[in-house]
Structure formats: structure tokens, C-alpha cells
């Protein structure tokens, strides 16, 4: 199975975009080597600004650069960018609707050993609630490249969440990322699994297991969390009559909530939300933590069975 680091792909894609578009500037807050903006810094030192450990200033400066006609890409760890940066993102980027691309790495709990302070299980909720904001979480490295290229064409505040570890590649290279459109990776009749990020792969594995039990599960990659693909959700509800969501994020406020907002008001069917329970993270390696927080495929299989019981 091919493995690709979403942050590695981001770093390389930024360099390519930097060559194509000299308006692009990149800002980081002392985590450039981890977020991979260091690749851009090396090639375009005069268009890279390391703001030091100052996340609020990072956001404000990016807003100023955008006002002056630059296209800023801003990176840090998800918890620091979305968390510490939140209010300046609201005031100085979203209210004036500025074209700033926020690309966070180290989302979710697969940050691993660093523990609760560095995990980000709240960023979807924090970003999704902001008017004018677009929220994206690619399923793998292939989609990361396409999404990063696509958001350059989209005008407005954008948040992209990437991860620390390498992810299995689930999309082939002909895949076309479309902002606001989900992508069905597997058709099914009995339920639809709507997932984002690493959970897309885990849902595909769960679907294979369910298949052995004679349960037919569709798997949909919902990489754009906002604006969410309402027609696809409504179609899934109509066609399969049950929806399971899966995300490496709190069960409160993220993909599950976004899907439930659509399902409950347009096409009510039973739902199951798989995610991190309302708890902070703990230290451990990424694989162990996925198991600890019940995000691996056997828990998705179990969730699917429960869901079918509600049909």
C-alpha cells in the first residue's frame, strides 16, 4: 500500500505553486520544518516570513499581506493555528472576507506522543462555525496536492487540515478534487459511510469487513466539510436509509454534526457519529491512539451494525 505524508505533499506543492505564481507568500510560526513550509522558505526566502512563536501576529500579518494583493499561505500545527489564531482569524480574515489560505498540519490525535496539548480535535468545529470560511480535510496525499492547487483558484478564507503521519493512498492519480463536492469511493445499498481524512481509509476497510457479513456499505469521501455537499448527503440518505460519519475529531461540532445538520432537516434517517469522544488526548503512538479512541475499522464495523439495528 502506497503511503504519503499529506504535509510532505503540501510542502512540495507549495514550491511548485511558488514557481507558477509569484504572488504567493508563505508564513509560519516557528514550525516550518514540521509543516514543510521550509521547502518554500529554501527556494523563495524573500517570500517566506517566519513570524516566530506568535500565532496571532501570524494571522494579522497574513491579513495585511492579503490586503496588499499577496496570496498568503499560513501554516502551523492545527491546534495553534485554529486555536490560538481563532479570534484574529474571525476579526481580520473572515469578517473582511480576505483571501488567506490557512493550512494546518498535525491535525487530530495522530500527532501522537506529544499528547493533549498538541492534539487538535476541535479545529473543524472552530473553523466551520465562521462565516465566509471554507473547510477542507483531504483523505490522502493525492487529494492534498489537488486540493492545495484548487484553493488557489477559490477566493476567500480557507482552512485545510493535514496530518503528521503518512496516510495510505486511497485515491488514484486521475482523481479530480472539486471544492464542495464529495466523492463516492464505494457504492452500497444498506448504509452510507461519510468520512474525512484518515477515516476514509478506515471506512473502506470497515466496508470490506461488512461485505463479508453480507452488509453493503457505500463509502463517501467528504473532504470539503464546508460548504458541505448537501445533494450527496440527501441522495445517500434516500438510497441507503442510514448514515455513519467518521472523523479524527471530536464527535461534537465536526463532520458528524455537519452531516446531521443536513440529514435532520432534509432527509431524516438514523445516524451514527464515529469520532473522538468528548475527551482530551493522551500520549501514545499514533496507531495505539487510533485504537484507544476507537477510530480503527473494527469500531466502525461495530458502529455500522448498531446503526442498521436502528433502521
Amino acid at each position: 500500500m502506497e503511503m504519503l505524508g499529506t504535509r510532505d505533499v503540501y510542502g512540495k506543492t507549495l514550491v511548485e505553486l511558488g514557481r507558477e505564481n509569484e504572488n504567493i507568500v508563505v508564513l509560519d510560526a516557528d514550525l516550518a520544518s514540521s509543516t514543510r513550509t521550509s521547502y518554500f522558505a529554501k527556494e523563495f526566502p524573500h517570500r517566506f516570513f517566519n513570524m516566530g512563536v506568535s500565532e496571532q501576529d501570524l494571522i494579522g500579518t497574513a491579513a495585511g499581506l492579503a490586503l496588499a494583493g499577496k496570496l498568503p499561505f499560513v501554516s502551523s500545527f492545527a491546534i495553534f493555528l485554529a486555536g490560538k489564531g481563532w479570534e484574529p482569524i474571525r476579526q481580520s480574515i473572515c469578517i473582511p472576507n480576505l483571501d488567506v489560505k490557512l493550512v494546518a498540519t498535525h491535525g487530530g490525535i495522530t500527532v501522537g506522543e506529544d499528547g493533549a496539548s498538541h492534539h487538535s480535535t476541535e479545529d473543524f468545529a472552530l473553523m466551520r462555525v465562521l462565516p465566509n470560511m471554507t473547510v477542507i480535510c483531504p483523505a490522502d496525499g493525492v487529494e492534498t496536492e489537488k486540493a492545495i492547487r484548487e484553493i488557489v483558484k477559490h477566493r476567500g478564507p480557507t482552512y485545510v487540515r493535514l496530518a503528521r503521519p503518512k496516510f495510505p493512498v486511497v485515491l488514484d492519480h486521475t482523481y479530480q478534487f472539486q471544492l464542495g463536492r464529495s466523492f463516492t469511493l464505494r457504492e452500497g445499498k444498506d448504509l452510507t459511510m461519510i468520512a474525512t481524512g484518515i477515516m476514509v481509509y478506515n471506512c473502506l476497510r470497515a466496508a470490506e469487513e461488512l461485505d463479508k457479513e453480507g452488509i453493503s456499505a457505500a463509502v463517501v469521501n467528504m473532504s470539503t466539510l464546508k460548504p458541505i455537499d448537501v445533494p450527496a448527503i440527501a441522495r445517500a440518505a434516500r438510497q441507503t436509509g442510514a448514515i455513519l460519519t467518521a472523523e479524527e475529531h471530536s464527535v461534537i461540532g465536526g463532520l458528524g454534526s455537519a452531516v446531521a445538520e443536513v440529514v435532520s432537516q432534509n432527509c431524516p434517517v438514523p445516524m451514527k457519529i464515529i469520532g473522538v469522544d468528548d475527551l482530551f488526548g493522551v500520549s501514545g503512538n499514533a496507531d495505539k491512539l487510533m485504537e484507544h479512541f476507537r477510530l480503527t475499522y473494527p469500531y466502525i464495523v461495530e458502529g455500522a451494525r448498531q446503526l442498521l439495528g436502528m433502521k
Partner: peptide, 19 residues
């Protein structure tokens, strides 16, 4: 620029000055 929440104008000014 839109403002009202305090503390942010200098960072924004810096961004414009850098550009």
C-alpha cells in the same frame, strides 16, 4: 480593514508594509 477587536491593526499594517 475591518476592526473592533483590539490589538490587531499593527500586525495588519506590518503585512501591508512588508508587501
Amino acid at each position: 480593514v475591518s476592526s473592533g477587536s483590539l490589538g490587531q491593526g499593527l500586525s495588519i499594517g506590518n503585512g501591508v508594509a512588508l508587501a
